[in-house]
Design a protein around this nucleic acid. Structure first.
Length: 364
DNA sequence: AAGCCGGGGGA
DNA sequence: TCCCCAGGCTT
């Protein structure tokens, strides 16, 4: 009778990764340490959900302070559900991908109003929540509720592709990777196993310069045998990033700065911002000044890089000292005069925060 | 399947 | 500099 060597290998890998986790787990604010987890303790589903959403395409280092701030300010999902969306967006400022903050708030309200404040306890129901996709649903089900869900994030994708030398280019290769992870995932303790894999992906099986000598499954790794670990996973070629230009408008009166919320769709949707030309609509060079007056143009005050383009920013400063108080309403119907002393509370996305910082330092 | 959506940290 | 990250949603 033929032995499934693949299955034997998977069993060994699972055991070694699980054992490694006991002594090498990262200590993270939203995580129950492995020994307490093995004793049956589970993390607060609200904390798991919040951290998972924050961690989407975002590093642990960037998330930590935001997680602490959110849980301090909104200790329970009911608190978050009662918050104003504008406050949630402002608290999210700097983390990026702001649709996450909108969906977070929407999801909190749904859980409180429709589910009596309890998160769904299985992968299929979690998947229906706004902002919860395939990865996040599996992660919450496994980590918070102990379901045997197959978790695949970028760390696990890399680790598994290397372990089995899966050379099907992504995204097609995702299916094979998920099937391999399915074989690795234990019947119980799927949450800790997923977190163990993610820790290895983050600290050992890194995209560049992997530390294979520290890896608990180096003997089982086919990519290491082949001698080119970094080749996996195979990714499609990256596209070039165009450089675009934007112009911001600095309109100040009595120590207050005129802000204009972004449109509800597109870049930085719904966030408070400096008034600007319509750079986000790929209409560079249409920097028509919003009102008549004495403007000075400061060239290239800020550079900023987004996912699919980078931006060079000019700032037009209105030097008129008799700006009408209702100037904003004359041009836009939703502008705000914000006191410069508390501008850091305005929740400006980093792009605009950089520009404000430049202007305030320029005055010194 | 491909495009859109931020920002920071590490090398 | 470039690369990548505990992805999801829309088209």
């Amino acid at each position: 009778m033929a032995v499934d060597k693949f299955a034997v290998e998977s069993t060994t890998i699972t055991a070694k990764i699980s054992a490694h986790y006991v002594d090498n787990a990262r200590n993270l604010p939203w995580r129950v340490p492995p020994l307490r987890s093995a004793a049956g303790e589970r993390p607060d589903p609200y904390h798991v959900w919040l951290s998972e959403v924050m961690l989407q395409q975002t590093t642990v280092a960037a998330v930590k302070s935001y997680f602490e701030a959110f849980t301090m300010r909104w200790p329970k999902v009911q608190d978050l559900a009662q918050a104003n969306e504008a406050d949630v967006l402002a608290a999210w400022a700097g983390l990026g991908y702001y649709a996450r903050a909108r969906n977070l708030h929407k999801c909190a309200r749904f859980v409180v109003e429709e589910l009596d404040g309890s998160f769904p306890q299985n992968e299929a129901e979690l998947l229906k929540l706004p902002g919860v996709g395939a990865y996040t649903a599996a992660a919450i089900a496994a980590i918070a509720f102990g379901e045997r869900a197959v978790v695949v994030d970028a760390n696990i994708e890399r680790l598994v592709a290397r372990l089995f030398a899966i050379d099907t280019p992504l995204p097609s290769g995702k299916l094979e990777i998920k099937q391999a992870m399915d074989k690795l995932t234990p019947q119980s303790g799927a949450g800790d196993f997923a977190q163990a894999c993610m820790d290895i992906g983050a600290s050992i099986c890194t995209a560049k310069n992997p530390k294979c000598m520290l890896c608990p499954v180096q003997l089982e790794c086919r990519a290491l045998v082949e001698g080119d670990v970094e080749r996996f996973p195979i990714k499609p070629p990256k596209k070039s990033k165009p450089v675009r230009k934007a112009r911001f408008f600095w309109i100040e009166r009595d120590g207050k700065l005129l802000l204009k919320p972004r449109p509800e769709k597109g870049m930085l949707a719904g966030m408070r911002a400096l008034p600007s030309d319509d750079w986000a609509a790929k209409r560079d060079g249409h920097a028509k000044l919003p009102i008549e007056g004495k403007w000075t143009i400061r060239e290239n005050i800020v550079q900023h890089s987004f996912t699919h383009f980078s931006l060079e920013v000019d700032m037009a400063v209105l030097e008129d000292d008799k700006i009408p108080i209702n100037i904003g309403d004359n041009i836009w119907n939703d502008s705000i005069w914000w006191p410069l002393e508390t501008i850091t509370d305005a929740g400006l996305p980093t792009l605009f925060a950089k520009a404000v910082k430049w202007k305030l330092e320029e005055l010194e």
